[in-house]
Design a protein around this nucleic acid. Sequence first.
DNA 1: TAGTGGTCTAGACCACACG
DNA 2: GTGTGGTCTAGACCACTAC
Lengths: 261, 261
Amino acid sequence: MTVFMVSSGQDTSSQPLHMVISEKLKEKIEAGLYEPGERLPSEFDLGELFGVSRTTVRKAIASLSQQGLVTTQRGKGIFVTDPHKISFSMSNPLLYFDAALKQQGYTSRVQSLRFQRIQAPAEVKRKLALTAKDAQVYWQEKIYYADDTPIALDITYYPEATGQALAEPLSQGFTYSTLVRNGIHLRAAKVSLESIPATYELSEYLAVPLGMPLLVFNYVACGGNRQPAVCGKTLSRSDWTCYTAEIEVDSPDLSILENSP
Amino acid sequence: MTVFMVSSGQDTSSQPLHMVISEKLKEKIEAGLYEPGERLPSEFDLGELFGVSRTTVRKAIASLSQQGLVTTQRGKGIFVTDPHKISFSMSNPLLYFDAALKQQGYTSRVQSLRFQRIQAPAEVKRKLALTAKDAQVYWQEKIYYADDTPIALDITYYPEATGQALAEPLSQGFTYSTLVRNGIHLRAAKVSLESIPATYELSEYLAVPLGMPLLVFNYVACGGNRQPAVCGKTLSRSDWTCYTAEIEVDSPDLSILENSP
DNA sequence: TAGTGGTCTAGACCACACG
DNA sequence: GTGTGGTCTAGACCACTAC
């Protein structure tokens, strides 16, 4: 077949076929030609439409899926996503996931995956400033939902006393709100933000494709006594979440740059 | 061949083959059996090793590549990555990319892709609080390097006066440092952080695989007069960068949660 | 039963690196 | 020329959905 020669011939100056197809579909979606919720043609049909193999179509669709533009459902089809974005503030007040969700018009829910007492891993001991050699902590994993969509997996470690005293409310609610409601006021936090591609396990928990970017919010929060009260991380879907902050600058110190050209 | 039947039979209870292979290789790398810089067996050889097709090997490698564990080089092979992570502080002082790079032992460099006067897009007009209907701004795109590795693409918009006055230093240096050095002191900034998968274009600029997570740091920075002095975004490789902050909480307001269960 | 996406195979051509 | 990764094909089986 000459088709093979033509379609597989890569012009040095052009993108791969799967990217061309991906871009074309993206334009159609963003132009509204496919509306949110609508089903795209099947992989087989798209292959015939563009004159390429199903493998190539799948690679194009994988890219769109990773961008959060479409979701795929086995046995059903490929559907255009209805875009959402929830902002979480890192300034005052300290980050309350449930408050942010409610403020932005979503119902919030928590599904607890585990809540158990374990020997503190080294990193957790350091973050919580635990000195006992066999210090115990409570380890919780839970999923945050916004309107029945899983948007984040939270992994939290509580000091033993806290976990024991608040086992019941903690296992059902959002971390920060539950602590504050029970008299543990958080006054400061050290946080960091990074991003990782979804592993196979995470992709199943959060109903995202393998490799979709996730935001990782690492935190160590301190109570009124300046002692660490809780630490952990929140892994959230990058298509649903972002973090905001307002930064004030006292007096920039550029001395480190003095020797620069 | 019976091999086909065996290898293609998916146990309901198990992961796909490409994930199994990916995990096995990941374990070997993290255990140090493959050292940073070392070359892995070729895709063909890995296929024979694991008894799978080259396509399946490629899918496994793609996952490792997206996680930043390996890099692929056409005509040469697959190489284990030497991991790096640079922290950028969002607290005081305001984010200076070059200062952070220098502090953490890297040499910094900027490659300017474009620096030109354009009519301000609507979003830029809003962010810079420009009122003139046909307001002009300077648009700059540049790549930040750490030790000759491209780690970020920065897109910046300057008000017309600033861009005109500082065309030369701006086109060669880091945004914030150059502004401050030239008397434009930044006092506050509104920022947001999100994450996207690398597009085809970005993957070429930053030498990363298609779909690798990128951190997007959006900013609007104000000068001493509280007027916006610059806005833009920095897209950085998630395998090389993270953002940190220290948060102080005045008095948490939980009133919005009062009606919660 | 028919149709869909998920996985995998075997084999082809290309662009690139290296000796 | 040989070997490598990058792209693409044609075709297979599976699990799931819907009728």
